[in-house]
Design a protein around this nucleic acid. Structure first.
Length: 566
RNA sequence: UGGGGCGUCGACAAACGGCAAGUCAGGAGUUUUUGGAGCUCCCAUUUGGAGGUUCGAAUCCUCCCGCCCCAGCCA
């Protein structure tokens, strides 16, 4: 069983597969599939399913197919198939030769339908959609048989052939499975298998005038591909008897086992494609890849790494209980990774000018800074220092409170990798009284940040030399929604009403050390004491870099302040 | 009042009749040239509730309570 050992925690689906393997089921094969409908972009919830399906296949040396469930041309588009392929690949998974489309099976699926008609297990029903709904009954009352339920095989065959030939208008007829109109499971009340639709399909064009529905197309597709374990989300649990019924009725040689798990919900975001589409269409976000979106493309642009998303999916587990994962779990993963791998550089987001009075006017020094204290192998770099520097506005207080350790009149702090400085005064705007400049003196003996006399400072702050600074735009992101569960009707009757007005803050006058020029694009780095950032590859220009904040650093000081306020 | 599921720490989640893992969040301390990171410790005498079976129950049985899904010619 050594080949089954994995670092991931155990879950009920893995246990089922292990048992199947031990029992020698499916010739000891594991074949899964990820079956998206190309009608939207993939999100972190899909990542959970992708990691599960591809992960299980890898763990048990089987394979995982990528199959587009493209049976509804009205909602689908090639734009989506391309983005889906890109996202799955980016997440680090490989379907090899096994890229499939349900639309490639249309002819076979049609033949299976014909088989069912010949077996007397399917019929053409000419009721309108409304009449079918009425006859379906309700949750507590059984349905009524369609008057067309007992058409002869010949008549059904002829009608179905003519449906395919495009002889009827949309809605004139459907093909239905003949099961049980009195079933307690509404899915078994003669479900529709085929509908007429004259919509052109993004892959098959106008060759088909009828399209199979999910319940029929999906199980048959799984079976044709030799899928062993067909993993889907909880809402399809009710469809399993139907999945099994179709394959039994067809006498399919391959009958995959459908297993359902709970889809991912995460705090402060929405996961339904419908809602995400609305956010895009109504312009609440800049697009599917807006860095605040829970989409894979959004997370990618935001600076999340594939490995951090995979780790997240391992961490949250797989079960049948409806649950809500704290987004902090996702954030923890990217912090953990970037802490170990990210370059450190200094950037001042909200600059406050500091003049070091006793520093020579024209002097510039190159000081050594460590690139990553967690990894000495990443080396050091030179950072220029001069008389006028910028520090963070929030690192200075004219009248400091008890918890504030940073710069204040008369107080000494360390400039990271540079000198100890002591505040000697401030310059204020005569109108507003706002501090526009801080005056300091430095101690030349503390070069590099250590005092030869051993004296300590309570705080180390970051800085950027004014003369050498690079101007940058920084985008600070926060949760897209204010309520922890914007999908909750009670909490947010209209989910858009819970949008966080401060989910994006754009800072235009940021100052970064020249070292940011050497940063590899597409990789996250840390602005010391602020958080992890990355280049925004869409909006950065040669003279105007734009940085996205991936995630902030843990802020103990903010916690202290919060406690103090209480 | 039909059918199908699910209830284990604030949030995820293991445990498959043998004495409640782990992760995130939170807290305390230690350390620190990032109020970061690290390290140490604390955080369910109890598994929705009540009964029962058993030497022994989160696990088996009964009843009750709560939550989720299903009445598309969507997936």
């Amino acid at each position: 069983m050594d080949e089954h050992v994995s670092a991931s925690p155990s879950n009920f689906i893995r246990n089922i597969i292990k048992e199947d393997l031990d029992a020698g089921k499916n010739d000891s094969m594991v074949i899964t599939r990820f079956p998206p409908e190309p009608n939207g972009y993939l999100h972190i919830g899909h990542a959970k399913s992708i990691c599960l399906n591809f992960g299980l296949a890898a763990e048990f040396r089987g394979r995982c197919h990528l199959r587009f469930d493209d049976t509804n041309p009205a909602k689908e588009d090639v734009e989506y198939t391309e983005s889906i392929k890109q996202d799955v690949r980016w997440l680090g998974f490989d379907w090899g030769e096994h890229l499939y489309y349900a639309s490639d099976y249309f002819e076979k699926i049609y033949q299976y339908a014909v088989d069912l008609i010949k077996a007397g297990k399917a019929y053409v029903c000419s009721l309108t959609a409304g009449e079918i709904r009425l006859n379906r009954g309700t949750l507590t009352e059984p349905g009524k048989d369609s008057p067309y339920r007992n058409r002869t095989v010949e008549e059904n065959l002829e009608l179905f052939g003519r449906m395919r030939a495009g002889e009827f208008e949309e809605g004139a007829h459907v093909l239905r499975a003949k099961i049980d109109m009195a079933s307690g499971n509404i899915n078994m009340r003669d479900p529709v298998m085929y509908r007429i639709s004259k919509t052109a399909h993004h892959r098959t064009g106008e060759t088909w005038r009828i399209y199979p529905l999910y319940d029929f197309a999906h199980c048959v597709s799984d079976s044709m591909e030799g899928i062993t374990h067909s993993i889907c989300t909880l809402e399809f649990e009710d469809h399993r008897p139907l999945y099994d019924w179709f394959l039994d009725a067809l006498g399919a040689p391959c009958h995959p086992q459908q297993i359902e798990f709970a889809r991912l919900n995460m705090t402060y975001t929405v996961m339904s494609k419908r809602k995400l589409l609305k956010l895009v269409e109504e312009g609440h976000v800049s697009g599917w890849d807006d860095p605040r979106m829970p989409t894979i493309s959004g997370l990618r642009r935001r600076g999340y790494t594939p490995s951090s998303i995979r780790d997240f999916c391992d961490r949250i587990g797989v079960a049948k209980r409806n649950s809500m994962v704290d987004v902090a779990m996702l954030e923890y993963g990217i912090r953990e990774e970037l802490n170990k791998t990210a370059m450190r550089v200094m950037a001042v987001l909200r600059p406050l000018k500091v003049v070091i009075e006793n520093y020579p006017d024209d002097r510039t020094e190159e000081l050594d800074a460590v690139n990553n204290p967690e990894d000495q192998a990443m080396g050091t770099r030179k950072v220029p220092f001069s008389k006028v520097i910028y520090i963070e506005k929030e690192d200075f207080m004219e009248v400091p409170h008890k918890q504030f350790f940073r710069l204040a009149p008369g107080r000494e702090v360390r400039l990271r990798y540079a000198y100890f400085i002591t505040c000697s005064g401030v310059v204020k705007d005569t109108e507003t009284g706002e501090v526009t400049e801080v005056r300091c003196t430095y101690d030349p003996l503390t070069r590099g940040g250590d005092a030869p006399d051993g004296r300590k400072v309570k705080s180390t702050i970051h800085w950027v030399s004014a003369r050498h600074a690079i101007d940058a735009e920084v985008r600070l992101y926060d949760h897209l929604f204010t309520g922890s569960n914007p999908s909750d009707e009670k909490e947010c009757p209209d989910f858009r009403g819970c949008l966080n007005p401060r989910s994006l803050e754009v800072l235009n006058s940021c100052k970064a050390e020249p070292g940011i020029r050497g940063l590899p694009e597409g990789k996250g780095f840390q602005f010391e004491r602020q958080g992890y950032f990355c280049h925004d590859l869409c909006d950065s220009t040669k003279d105007g870099p734009v940085f996205n904040r991936i995630v902030s650093l843990k802020d103990t000081y903010a916690k202290v302040l919060k406690k103090g306020t209480k």
